[in-house]
Design a protein around this nucleic acid. Structure first.
Lengths: 116, 116
DNA sequence: GCCGTACTACGATGGGTATCGTACAAGCGT
DNA sequence: ACGCTTGTACGATACCCATCGTAGTACGGC
């Protein structure tokens, strides 16, 4: 029983609650930007464990939460896995072209020879 | 004399040194985003003292430095004043459309009724 | 030469946050 | 039922950073 019911629901900001500052902040971290890029590349939703990030699992959870709470991604439970998808429609409605611009910029930077 | 010559030069990252992460970080702060928006709206360069920011002068200096060191703006001395201008060409060459996208997003957010 | 304006440098401070480890919870498969 | 996989919660830590105040430097004007 444990508590009768833990529907495992996740809090997401509504479209109106998404703040540009928060989105930019979320995207300003290299780990999170990598997640968003992979998520955007894959049309499907991806589980958290799909990603091979250079941090521990605790930190991974933290980053996914930042992305969710900033409104960049939507998370849903699917069994033991947690699926992640970009909130394209919401972001596009609020900030048209922003996501595409950032993703293009990330691609451009990744293609740069100074990729250390 | 002081030291014979203090050309008052300011260090700017070269175009190749500009990092997307740094740019996004710079733009993720509300004070700095406000500066960039005003700077983009005005075609001319603007002095630091032109801006009416909700922080002290020390903090203002700090924010302008972050913008300069991230490669978003270019600063030049003009007498006692320090003029600021957006590095449009460099940003456009590196991340085409990014600046425009962020500025449009900022405008969109500012136009939102939930502007608290 | 002096003063005022514009900006800077330095130090202090407080809050945010990226990171980790460990211990735990939830669900699936056998 | 048991354990494995997946992800979470909590606490600790260390660093970054936005903010301030005060003192100081640079330059132009009087």
């Amino acid at each position: 029983m444990t508590t009768a019911a833990t529907p495992r629901s996740l809090e997401h900001p509504t479209r109106a609650e998404i703040r540009l500052e928060g989105v930019l902040h979320a995207l300003a971290d290299p780990v999170r930007l990598q997640v968003v890029r992979e998520l955007a590349a894959a049309e499907d939703e991806l589980s958290c464990s799909y990603f091979d990030l250079p941090v521990t699992k605790s930190t991974t959870t933290h980053h996914f939460r930042v992305l969710r709470e900033s409104g960049v991604i939507r998370q849903t439970y699917r069994g033991t896995a947690k699926m992640n998808g970009i909130r394209r429609d919401d972001l596009e409605a609020l900030f048209p072209g922003l996501l595409a611009g950032v993703l293009a910029a990330a691609d451009a930077e990744a293609a740069r020879p100074s990729g250390t």
